[in-house]
């Protein structure tokens, strides 16, 4: 599940990950949170990845991985919907403490990367880069290829840098 705000490319992020999974020989499905799209409002998109055909179109209530674009969006509802043993990839410049000890937290200082690379509108790409190296679900190379094809060579570094700089935060709780 990807959680960001309208205009940050949340839907695109889901789509890129689904496409990368497809390239990796996996079945995938990606869909946005359905409804009117409004800039700035919290918005989600969802991805299912499987090594067998995906039939279900049920809404997703629980996730193995939550990619949260900003720390402010990380509320209790999100915390509760991540499955035990699941992962949160969080866009944050700090390292927050989670109330659950059964999930893994990865933090990426995405804003700093975007500032350095002068790519303020590529937050979603940084988050995917971080997701790749945090979860190893999909090969980074496929994501890079798709990003370069759709958004140009200059965005490759966003994905790469985020993949390098994402850090695992040990939870004490």
């Amino acid at each position: 599940m990807f959680l960001g705000r309208g205009g940050q490319g949340v839907v695109t992020a889901g789509r890129i990950v689904a496409e990368a999974a497809l390239r990796a020989g996996l079945f995938s499905q990606s869909f946005p949170e359905f409804g009117p799209e409004r800039s700035g409002a919290p918005v989600r998109s969802y991805v299912r990845i499987s090594d067998e055909p995906i039939y279900t179109r049920a809404p997703m209530e629980n996730f193995d991985v939550a990619v949260v674009f900003e720390e402010r969006l990380l509320d209790s509802a999100i915390m509760e919907s991540v499955r035990s043993g699941g992962i949160i990839v969080l866009g944050s410049e700090s390292t927050p403490e989670l109330p659950r000890g059964d999930i893994k937290l990865f933090v990426i200082g995405a804003r700093r990367i975007l500032e350095e690379l002068r790519k303020p509108r590529s937050l979603n790409l940084a988050m995917i880069g971080a997701l790749c190296s945090a979860t190893k679900l999909i090969p980074l190379q496929h994501v890079e290829d798709i990003v370069v094809r759709r958004f140009g060579e200059e965005n490759r570094e966003v994905v790469r840098r985020a993949a390098q700089l994402v850090v695992s935060v040990e939870q004490t709780a």
């Binding site: 789509r15 990606s30 869909f31 179109r57």
Partner: peptide, 12 residues
Amino acid sequence: LDGFTVSHSSEP
């Protein structure tokens, strides 16, 4: 095609 659940769902 079902609105959103098929129309907006990306699949192979």
